[in-house]
Computed example of a mutant assay.
Amino acid sequence: MTTARAHLTRDDLAPLAREALGRAPAAVTRLRGGSKKGVYRLALDNGRSAIAYVWSPEEDYWGPADADIRDPFAHASGLGLFLSAHDLLTELGVRTPRLLFADEDAEHLPAYAAVVEDVRGGSLEVLLRSDPGAARVPLARLAGTLGVLRECVSTGYGKAALVEEGGKPRGSSCEQVVADRAMRDIAEVAERDPRVRAVRRALAERVHELYDAVEPRDHASLVHGELGPDHVLVTEEGDPALIDIEGLMYFDAEWEHVFLQLRFGPAYDVLRTADLDEDRTALYRLAMHLNLVAGPLRLLDGDFPEREQMRDIAESNLRRVLSLLRGAS
Rank of each mutant, 00 (worst) to 15 (best):
V321W: 10
L149P: 00
E151C: 12
G121V: 04
A328N: 00
D103Q: 09
E125T: 01
P169G: 00
S329A: 14
D12C: 09
V207W: 12
G47R: 07
R41V: 09
R200D: 09
F73M: 09
A26D: 08
F259M: 13
L203I: 04
E226H: 11
E308W: 13
T145F: 05
W62C: 07
T2L: 07
A241T: 01
A287Q: 06
V234W: 06
P138E: 02
S35D: 02
W62V: 02
S56C: 07
A4S: 09
G80R: 14
K168V: 12
D303E: 15
Y53N: 13
L227N: 03
A106E: 05
L8N: 03
A282L: 10
D230H: 14
E59F: 07
R197Y: 05
R18G: 04
L142E: 00
Q309H: 14
H224K: 00
V126L: 03
D60Y: 08
L242E: 01
A267D: 03
G247N: 08
D118I: 02
H108K: 11
D71A: 14
Q309A: 13
D212C: 03
T235H: 09
E256R: 04
R23Y: 06
F259H: 13
V148Q: 05
A134S: 08
R150S: 02
Y250I: 05
E188W: 10
G47D: 06
D68Y: 14
A27T: 06
E236R: 07
D269E: 15
G34S: 14
R197I: 01
A106P: 08
A160N: 01
A213M: 11
S84V: 00
A20Q: 10
E205P: 03
S35C: 06
